[in-house]
C-alpha cells in the first residue's frame, strides 16, 4: 500500500446555532497518498472548504472541530499547539485560495510577499531569498521574474496572480498543497494552464495536492482519485476513472450529468 501523507478520520466540524449545534462536516474520513492529487468535489456549502481549513486549523471562530483526527505524517494535527501549528502551516502544508487578488496584501509588492514566507520559515539570507523567489516565480511559469517581483498585486492579471499565489504556497517546498477552488475564477484557457502547472509541480517536487473544487472537468484532467461530498458527508471515493465511468452514488451521478 502507498504511504499516506495525510489521513483524516471521522472528522466532525460543527457550528453552534443558539442552543443547537449542527454538523457541517459529519464524520468524514479521507486520505491522500504521497505524491498524488486528490480531488474533493461537491456543491456549494457541502463542507469541502471547511475540511481544507480544518487541516491547517484556520476555521472561522464560529466553527468548532468536535471530533476525529487529522494525521499528518503520523501526528495528529488537532493536538498541536498554536506555535507548533504555525510551523506546519506554510512550511509543510501550503494553501492556495480561490481569489488571488484578495489573498495578496494590496500594499506590498508581490515579490516581497513571497519573500516573507521564506523569511519566516527558512534561514536563508537576503540575497539567497531574493534569488529563490525569482526562481519560484520562474518555476510557476511567469515571464520576467524580476519585473513580477517589483509589481503590486493589482498590476497582475488573474491568472498571473494565481501563479504568484502558487509560487508563495510552494516557496518552502511543502509536502501537501491545499488548493481551494484555484481555477474557479479563471477563464478556460488559463484554467488549462494552471492544471498543467499543478501536474508539473506534482512531478517535480513530489507534491501531494488536495484539490477542492466543484468543477469535475478540472478533476478529471488532474486528479488520481476523487472524493465526492454533499451535506457534510463523503458519499463516494475512488479512482477518478472509475468514479467518472460508473458512479455508484446518486449525487455523483447527478453531478456528472451536469457537467
Amino acid at each position: 500500500m502507498v504511504p499516506k501523507i495525510i489521513k483524516i478520520q471521522n472528522l466532525i466540524v460543527s457550528v453552534k446555532q443558539g442552543e443547537q449545534s449542527k454538523n457541517i462536516v459529519d464524520k468524514v474520513s479521507l486520505s491522500i497518498a504521497e505524491n498524488s492529487i486528490v480531488g474533493l468535489v461537491g456543491g456549494s456549502g457541502s463542507g469541502k472548504t471547511t475540511i481544507g481549513l480544518s487541516i491547517i486549523r484556520l476555521l472561522a471562530a464560529a466553527l468548532k472541530i468536535d471530533g476525529g483526527e487529522i494525521l499528518f505524517e503520523g501526528y495528529n494535527l488537532l493536538t498541536y499547539s498554536g506555535s507548533k501549528m504555525r510551523e506546519i502551516r506554510g512550511k509543510k502544508i501550503g494553501m492556495v485560495f480561490q481569489e488571488p487578488l484578495y489573498a495578496f496584501n494590496p500594499v506590498f509588492r508581490v515579490g516581497e510577499q513571497i519573500n516573507e514566507v521564506l523569511r519566516f520559515h527558512t534561514r536563508l539570507d537576503v540575497n539567497k531569498r531574493k534569488a529563490k523567489v525569482l526562481e519560484l516565480i520562474d518555476m510557476v511559469g511567469l515571464p520576467y521574474p524580476d519585473k513580477i517581483y517589483e509589481n503590486y498585486p493589482h498590476q497582475l492579471s488573474g491568472g498571473m496572480r494565481q501563479r504568484a499565489m502558487i509560487a508563495q504556497a510552494i516557496a518552502t517546498e511543502p509536502k501537501l498543497l491545499i488548493a481551494d477552488e484555484p481555477t474557479s475564477n479563471l477563464d478556460v484557457t488559463v484554467q488549462a494552464k494552471i492544471i498543467e502547472l499543478f501536474q508539473d509541480l506534482n512531478k517535480k517536487l513530489n507534491l501531494s495536492i488536495l484539490l477542492i473544487t466543484h468543477d469535475l472537468g478540472v478533476v478529471s484532467h488532474l486528479c488520481d482519485s476523487i472524493a465526492v461530498m454533499t451535506n457534510g458527508k463523503i458519499v463516494e471515493t475512488g479512482k477518478t476513472d472509475e468514479v467518472m465511468r460508473s458512479p455508484k452514488d446518486k449525487y455523483t451521478e447527478a453531478l456528472l450529468s451536469c457537467s
Binding site: 504555525r86 506554510g90 501550503g94 485560495f97 484578495y102 495578496f104 496584501n105 516573507e116 519566516f120 508563495q168
Partner: peptide
C-alpha cells in the same frame, strides 16, 4: 476578515506579525 490575512495565517505568519 480580508482574505490576505487568512492567506498570511495559512503561510504560518505569527499573529503579531
Amino acid at each position: 476578515e480580508r482574505e490576505y490575512v487568512l492567506a498570511a495565517k495559512a503561510a504560518g505568519v505569527s499573529d503579531l506579525k
